[in-house]
Nucleic acid binder design. Sequence first.
DNA 1: CCTCTCCGTTCCGAAACGGAACCTTGACAG
DNA 2: CTGTCAAGGTTCCGTTTCGGAACGGAGAGG
Lengths: 167, 167
Amino acid sequence: MRWDMLDEEACSVARTVSVVGDRWTLLILRDCFLKVRRFEQFQERLGITRHVLADRLKKLVKTGVLERNAYQDRPARYDYRLTDKGLALYPVLLALVHWGDTQGAEGRARPVHYRHRTCGALLDPIMVCSECREPLGARDVLVEPGPGLPEGHGLLDPALKSRSSAS
Amino acid sequence: MRWDMLDEEACSVARTVSVVGDRWTLLILRDCFLKVRRFEQFQERLGITRHVLADRLKKLVKTGVLERNAYQDRPARYDYRLTDKGLALYPVLLALVHWGDTQGAEGRARPVHYRHRTCGALLDPIMVCSECREPLGARDVLVEPGPGLPEGHGLLDPALKSRSSAS
DNA sequence: CCTCTCCGTTCCGAAACGGAACCTTGACAG
DNA sequence: CTGTCAAGGTTCCGTTTCGGAACGGAGAGG
């Protein structure tokens, strides 16, 4: 399977991954949320190749995550900012940060803290159920078929299927 | 910058991305949460090259996200399951799914629904502040330096710095 | 005129990837 | 004891992508 096919997939993860599932893209987005906007800034902070940076920015603009707008004319200069669609990726970044803070760090202290403007406290981001507001673990959630599931394509718990069809 | 350097970074996003920031890796993890465990299953469902699949699984085992254990001897056969460290990635996957459902889908119906076992409702995963339990948007969170921030390395809002040092 | 800044593009060798075949261990069938 | 099959990989080869570095171009400033 090649990557041009991924954005056509029914699976929401696959479509999201086709947009942001790339090491550099995720780091670019991290910097976007830290208010980095200009080509040179990205390049210097990330140490990314200019070639790859130009390519990733172009793709992010094409997918509507960033928008490229001129912040001056003569000479024409452009910067890149998150659209609403891009801002909606914030939970993804928070989830990555939190995993890095709690699981990846071997005795490392946190490089940054996050303070909630509205309540004033230092926070951890936690993923909760929209209905009961309880934290969500992998064991707490049951996957059910939805209306957009292509038939035959087992996005569902394949353990059930393979155990009954195998042997 | 090359990828061997990323896991040494102070930034939690960079370290997380060095582990899971790869298209195939994220799709492999999606399937792990759907209880796919065997090499052949991954290969068939994902359409991934066996070569790359073996490589990714090996890396995920090395980083402690998956564990490889024999489910039979003679012939020795192995499967891969999420460790606690791997299970802790669930919020990342939920965030990716939710973005795909709400932003990536152009009129598409959801392929799967998620039901909360403990409250029984169909849920959306939302990221909230651990202290006040309010949903977190990019505008609601203030980034502050933490004890692990290497000096000079501006992980902080660079707009402040560049505006005062530039021009 | 020369140089500087910013945003890229072009070029080249190295690394990663996709596709397909092959290997190994053992079970099972004839 | 010779196929054949299954699972879990490994090897090989040609194509893409990447990293590193140079070049381009459109103005600003001296």
